[in-house]
Design a protein around this nucleic acid. Structure first.
Length: 488
RNA sequence: GCCCCCAUCGUCUAGUGGCCUAGGACACCGGCCUUUCACGCCGGCAGCACGGGUUCGAAUCCCGUUGGGGGUGCCA
């Protein structure tokens, strides 16, 4: 137990802390190792169950509600969660709204929604700093009474000694040392009476019995201050600190709201899956020992160690995120993929025309061509629009060649009464192409442009089959007419 | 300015004194497959910032240089 000055019960308002008051809980630690089977999938191969009795870890994720959840905050939340789950410890959500403007409900809702989307869950109710002002005030009064702090222009400053050092052993960075003489007397209570970040931080980490503080590297320099306050509160111990490397942009600068695309919800809206986001974020500053990057979160939990986090900053690479997302998308079964597409389909101007049966049939055609879900609907529009939107460049490139009109003429003639089966259409077009000394790759081009409006897209014969004979013939007829008109 | 931190392919990483002729992934470039585009497969390009130590031996340990980043608020 940490020692506290004054009335100890005053610090114990949280019911979840009762267990801690009565002593540390003991628990077994399970470890699991993975190996790769020949098909490249991972599976647990050995379990060693060590009945090692340790106290329960308590971690916290402590965002300031400044808007939509930042990618960097999401990574911090994730690493806290991974370690808490890895050690079968507890994770507390603490909203740092000591500043009145930050206590707005919609900002706090956003944090909850984002974390829920990522499936990062917490133990117990969220702690709101705005509701704990009495605790902070008591602490400040105590420091004042003990002569550890003084009033300055209405604010209260903590007296920092001019000598000695403050240091800690960081799980990521090793020993970090600050000379006290470089630390100024800092404000612990503003002149408006509200507590500052330092005070709330120190008081809450102690009160909530936090054992591991996992946060961004941008907070290293506040750590000595928080340690001093913690000691001034009577604590003799220090939690384990792990300062995670910053996530940076191409210019190697800390990801910022102004310059960079940092809102988690933007990625969600573009069609990045939460599972893929988690997987990618876990790879920023950490790597699995076996080099297998894409794997279920359960395995990441098993393998994750704070000690293994590397200290240098990591660039956020949207391309790699999308590559990983593409893998997750391809791994889905077609029904789930179709289902996942729904919100993006609904956003389309042609969404009223969508026939669910046809959608179920054609969505899988673009599944392996999709890296983020928002890319899919534009590939599917011609299935549902009255007539395809003709891409100008594709038309110029493909249709202005003389053989285009000939191919379309032959195709129209044959398609009128051929069996409407994928294989049959395939063979028919190949035969037509051969009669013009063209390989199928070339022969299909004008048909594709006529039917889909573009030179690239999902497999043509499957597409035509889904569209039906009538529609395909009509679109070919329109294209032929356009070519004829252009001749005049 | 002062304080703190960081340094392996373009990027994310593996590597913790000999297994390293430095491995994987993304990106990029070829090729194969092929009805376009993708997917998949095969191959290629590319890195231990530099200089000193320590050691029989250093990407790995130490020191320095250079470069980069973060902080320096009565924001958090």
């Amino acid at each position: 137990m940490v020692g506290l000055k004054g009335d100890v019960t005053k610090w114990r308002k949280c019911p979840s802390c009762l267990t801690h008051l009565s002593g540390r809980r003991l628990m077994p630690i399970r470890r699991r190792s993975y190996s790769r089977s020949s098909d490249g999938k991972s599976e647990p191969t050995s379990y060693s169950r060590t009945l090692k009795f340790v106290s329960t870890n308590r971690l916290r994720f402590a965002p300031a509600p400044t808007g939509s959840l930042h990618i960097g905050s999401a990574r911090t939340a994730l690493f806290n969660w991974l370690y808490a789950r890895h050690t079968e410890g507890e994770l507390v959500l603490r909203i740092e709204d000591t500043n009145a403007e930050l206590a707005r409900p919609e900002l706090i809702d956003n944090i909850h929604r984002s974390l829920e989307w990522l499936q990062i869950d917490f133990d117990g109710e969220p702690v709101r700093q705005s509701e704990r002002t009495d605790l902070y005030n008591d602490a400040v009064e105590q420091w004042l009474a003990d002569g550890l702090a003084y009033v300055d222009d209405g604010a209260v400053r903590f007296r920092v000694p001019n000598e000695g050092t403050t240091s800690w052993e960081d799980a990521v960075r090793g020993n970090v040392v600050f000379e006290n003489r470089h630390i100024e007397d800092f404000v612990v209570r503003r002149s408006d009476g509200s507590a500052t970040f330092f005070t709330a931080n120190a008081v809450d980490d102690l009160d909530l019995e936090i054992t591991h503080v996992v946060r961004g590297e941008d907070l290293v320099n506040v750590t000595p201050k928080v340690i001093m306050l913690r000691q001034a509160l009577g604590a003799t111990d220090v939690p384990e600190f792990a300062h995670l490397p910053l996530i940076v942009n191409e210019q190697r600068k800390k990801l910022s709201k102004r310059r960079d695309d940092v809102a988690l919800e933007n990625y969600r809206d573009r069609g990045v899956l939460a599972t893929a986001m988690i997987n990618y974020l876990a790879l920023l500053g950490w790597g699995p020992p076996d080099d297998i990057e894409i794997r279920p979160v359960e395995e990441i939990i098993e393998l994750f160690e704070l000690d293994d986090v590397n200290p240098s900053s990591a660039m956020f690479d949207a391309k790699k995120l999308e590559a990983i997302n593409g893998e997750y998308l391809r791994a889905m079964n077609p029904q789930d993929f179709t289902q996942a597409l729904q919100p993006w389909i609904e956003d389309q101007p042609w969404s009223d025309m969508v026939d669910p049966t046809r959608l179920a049939k054609v969505a899988p055609l673009v599944q392996e061509r999709t890296r983020v879900l928002s890319e899919a609907p534009p590939q599917l529009d011609f299935f549902f629009m009255e007539s395809p939107e003709i891409d100008h460049d594709a038309w110029e490139k493909i249709m202005l060649k003389e053989e285009a009109a000939l191919i379309l003429e032959s195709v129209h003639k044959v398609f009128v009464d051929t069996d409407w089966e994928v294989d049959v259409l395939h063979d028919a077009l190949r035969t037509i192409g051969e009669s013009h000394q063209m390989k199928l790759g070339k022969a299909q081009a004008p048909v594709r442009v006529a039917v889909t409006g573009r030179s690239v897209g999902p497999p043509l014969f499957e597409s035509m089959h889904a569209l039906g004979r009538e529609t395909v013939l009509a679109r070919i007829a329109v294209a032929r007419q356009m070519l004829a008109d252009a001749q005049k």
